Amino acid sequence: MTDSWVPPKGSWASSAARRRNMQAIRSRDTKPELRIRQLVHAGGLRYRVAARPLPGLRRTADLVFGPAKVAVFVDGCYWHGCPEHYVSPRTNPGYWSEKVTRNVLRDRDTDSRLEEAGWIVLRFWEHESPEECALVIDGAVRARRGGR
């Protein structure tokens, strides 16, 4: 990609540099997610990564414990509107604030759909202690499996 790239009229990408920056943001395998996965795995639990808990729902959970019906999401503070850490951007604030609002609404919709289907939904913020998150996940999965 060259620096002469120009965004299409009305595009969210206000510059080539902004576009590169936004494309570099990971949607999976973030540091907090990897640490939680490592701890849960070390505790003896196995799971699917970035999988759809419900086949007909085009949304993925970060960790899926299928037989136990536990879906885990590790939400980024910016993209999911953390009440403690979200700060509206100075560049194009209307667009980004609306985007985060849509993300939060989609998260709530996902939670309710999964809960209606009998799933336990666990959501953690990226700033939470991975050790504490892993303990909560372990407890929920083992309780669903009958203490195994």
Rank of each mutant, 00 (worst) to 15 (best):
A13G: 09
F65I: 04
S88N: 13
S97K: 14
D62V: 04
L34T: 04
S4E: 15
R108I: 00
G146A: 14
S11A: 13
P89M: 07
R102G: 13
R46H: 11
H85K: 08
S14C: 09
A42V: 06
Y86H: 09
V121F: 00
R90Q: 12
P7V: 07
V136T: 15
Q38H: 13
R90N: 11
C82T: 11
E132A: 15
G118V: 06
V100K: 13
E126L: 02
A51Y: 03
V72A: 03
D111V: 01
G94R: 15
S112C: 02
W5V: 14
E131D: 14
L105G: 02
R144V: 03
M22R: 13
K9G: 00
G146Y: 12
G44P: 06
E132L: 14
L54D: 00
D138T: 13
V6N: 09
T101E: 15
P130Q: 11
T110V: 07
G44T: 06
V49T: 06
T30E: 08
D109H: 00
D111M: 00
M22P: 08
Y47H: 06
L57D: 00
R142F: 15
A17D: 08
I25H: 12
V64N: 05
E132H: 15
V74H: 09
K69D: 03
Y86Q: 07
R19L: 07
A71S: 13
G146Q: 13
K99Q: 04
K99F: 04
S88C: 14
T91Q: 10
W96D: 05
E98I: 05
R20H: 09
V104M: 15
W125C: 10
G56K: 01
P53I: 01
S97I: 13
S14K: 14
A68G: 11
S11L: 08
P7G: 10
R144F: 03
H41G: 01
D29F: 10
V64D: 04
R26P: 05
G43I: 03
G43W: 02
H41A: 03
P55I: 01
H85L: 06
G66S: 03
R148E: 14
L54T: 00
V87W: 00
P7C: 06
L63T: 00
L39F: 06
G146T: 14
G81W: 12
A24Q: 14
A13Q: 10
Q23M: 11
F124E: 14
V87L: 07
R145G: 06
N21W: 12
R48Y: 06
P55Q: 05
R148V: 15
G43R: 10
G147Y: 12
D111R: 01
P53R: 00
L57C: 01
H80G: 12
E33M: 08
R52Q: 10
A143H: 03
V40W: 05
R59M: 11
G10V: 02
E33T: 10
W119F: 00
E131F: 09
I120V: 13
Y86M: 07
K99A: 05
G118Q: 05
F65M: 09
F65A: 08
M1I: 07
W96Y: 10
V40D: 02
Y86V: 09
D111G: 01
V6D: 04
A71Y: 08
R145F: 03
K99D: 02
P7W: 04
D138Q: 12
L122Q: 02
F124P: 12
E126F: 04
Y78G: 08
V6H: 11
V136I: 15
H41D: 03
L114Y: 03
S88L: 12
G81P: 07
V141S: 01
E33F: 07
V74T: 11
R142I: 11
I120W: 01
